[in-house]
Simulated scan of single mutants.
Amino acid sequence: MTDSQWQKQSDDSYLITGSLNRDSVPKIWQAVQQWQPESSRIEVNMEQVKRVDSAGMVLLIHLIEHAKKQNCHIMLSFVPKQLKTLFQLSNVEEYLGGHLKN
């Protein structure tokens, strides 16, 4: 299996690949913490995310907060069904509603 990664595609587009779980989140968070958005609106494509757990969900919430502090709005696209279920079970759907692209 390939490593999970946070990859820049363009100034306003990023890709997350692999698994977002307790094993991969620390590595991805290191990259995200140093990230400086180059646009006021960023799309994060999750089409290649194979598996996600609660640690991955928390990473995404922190990513959204990190971007907000830098006047950037994150939109998550191709959100896996498994993650949408975690959002529902954790009662964070309302908070993330403006960040989910259909």
Rank of each mutant, 00 (worst) to 15 (best):
T2M: 15
Q30V: 01
P80W: 03
I61W: 06
Q5D: 10
Q82R: 06
A55M: 11
E93C: 08
T85F: 06
K50I: 11
T2L: 15
R51P: 01
N21F: 05
D12S: 12
S4L: 03
N21H: 04
Q48T: 10
A31V: 11
A55E: 00
M1T: 09
Q9D: 11
K50F: 08
V92K: 11
H99K: 02
V58L: 02
H62W: 08
E38I: 01
L20W: 00
V92T: 07
P80I: 06
I28A: 04
K8M: 14
L20F: 11
G98Q: 09
V32L: 06
S90A: 15
L86E: 10
K69S: 11
Y95H: 05
V25C: 10
Q36S: 07
I74Y: 04
E38T: 03
L60A: 05
W29Q: 08
L20T: 00
I28P: 12
H73C: 14
M1C: 07
I28S: 02
W6C: 00
S4H: 06
E38H: 03
S77T: 12
M75S: 11
V44A: 11
G56E: 09
L60H: 10
W6Q: 05
V58S: 04
V25Y: 06
K81Q: 15
K8H: 12
A67D: 01
K27T: 13
L63Y: 09
L20N: 08
K50C: 08
I64E: 10
K81N: 12
V49G: 02
P26N: 00
V25N: 03
V32M: 04
G56Y: 06
S90Y: 10
D11Y: 02
L59Q: 12
E47G: 13
S10D: 12
L59I: 06
V58M: 11
V52H: 02
P80V: 01
V52Q: 07
L60N: 13
V58R: 05
G98S: 06
Q48D: 06
P26Y: 00
R22N: 07
L96N: 00
H66M: 05
K84V: 13
E94R: 14
L63I: 09
M75Y: 13
L83C: 10
L83E: 02
I42C: 09
S77C: 03
L15F: 09
Q9E: 14
N102C: 11
I42Y: 04
F78C: 14
Y14P: 01
N91P: 13
N21V: 08
M46H: 08
K84T: 14
L15R: 15
Q30W: 01
D12C: 06
M1V: 02
G98C: 10
Q48S: 09
A67G: 01
P37N: 10
H99W: 02
C72Y: 10
L96Y: 00
W35R: 00
M75N: 14
